[in-house]
Design a protein around this nucleic acid. Structure first.
Lengths: 114, 114
DNA sequence: CAGCAGTATCGATCTACATCAATGTGTTGG
DNA sequence: CCAACACATTGATGTAGATCGATACTGCTG
């Protein structure tokens, strides 16, 4: 019915960081980038992200099984990834459908990149 | 006089992970990759890495000042980065000289790649 | 409206880690 | 051989986060 709602847009998300090799990072940039990396630095979240990336869209209820985690735990991890800007959730009816945000991953790659 | 010693080669470091978008990560691969990302997910370590990357070599004593951290803390962070395979330390006389391991950063970028 | 299903939040617990003072180890110079 | 320096390790402390049971919220459905 088109009543889809975007969920949890996070505060300020830089789309570009200076690459690690270019110049010493400032404290603010380092803290921001560390936040995104911390969201990625969890085995469950990495597997969650790869599951969502492998399909186009995945709903939360289809994640509990493959991940072997409880519903509150899965909800927690999707939230962390969404707040880091790596995932986008859209509510359709009772379900929330998740997609990856490729721009965000590309920004992290570039920040780590030569 | 040529008695340089490599420091803290870490256990098993994969040079290649399946990219996040390709196929769901296995638990072992996810845990391994999460380990490297956890080493990167710290503002101090990111700044440390960018300082080392900006120069060719940096000795530990030149890191305390820019980072504003105590000597044991700097030693702790260099150790974490070295065990993650991101930094290589070489002892020459009293000093330890640190270099980045570009291959390792490239592997992380590739794993995060679309 | 009542009941159910998918999600989110809360509260509690356990574990991991960042930090630094104190101390240990190894190296150079006198 | 000793004193000074660079770095590593240990022990203690505070904080952040992963997990799950219980519970609240939200949109379907009968």
């Amino acid at each position: 019915m088109g009543n889809a709602k975007q969920l949890r847009k996070s505060a300020e998300l830089a789309l570009c960081y200076p690459a690690v090799g270019e110049a010493p990072l400032g404290e603010a940039e380092a803290a921001d980038l560390a936040g995104v990396l911390a969201a990625l630095a969890d085995p469950i979240r990495l597997r969650l992200l790869s599951i969502v990336a492998s399909h186009d869209e995945v709903c939360s209820c289809d994640l509990e099984g493959p991940l072997g985690k409880s519903q509150p735990t899965v909800s927690h991890h999707t939230r962390v990834l969404a707040e880091a800007g790596l995932l986008t959730g859209e509510r359709r009816g009772r379900w929330v459908w998740w997609r990856v945000e490729p721009t965000r991953l590309a920004a992290v790659r570039k920040a780590l990149g030569a």
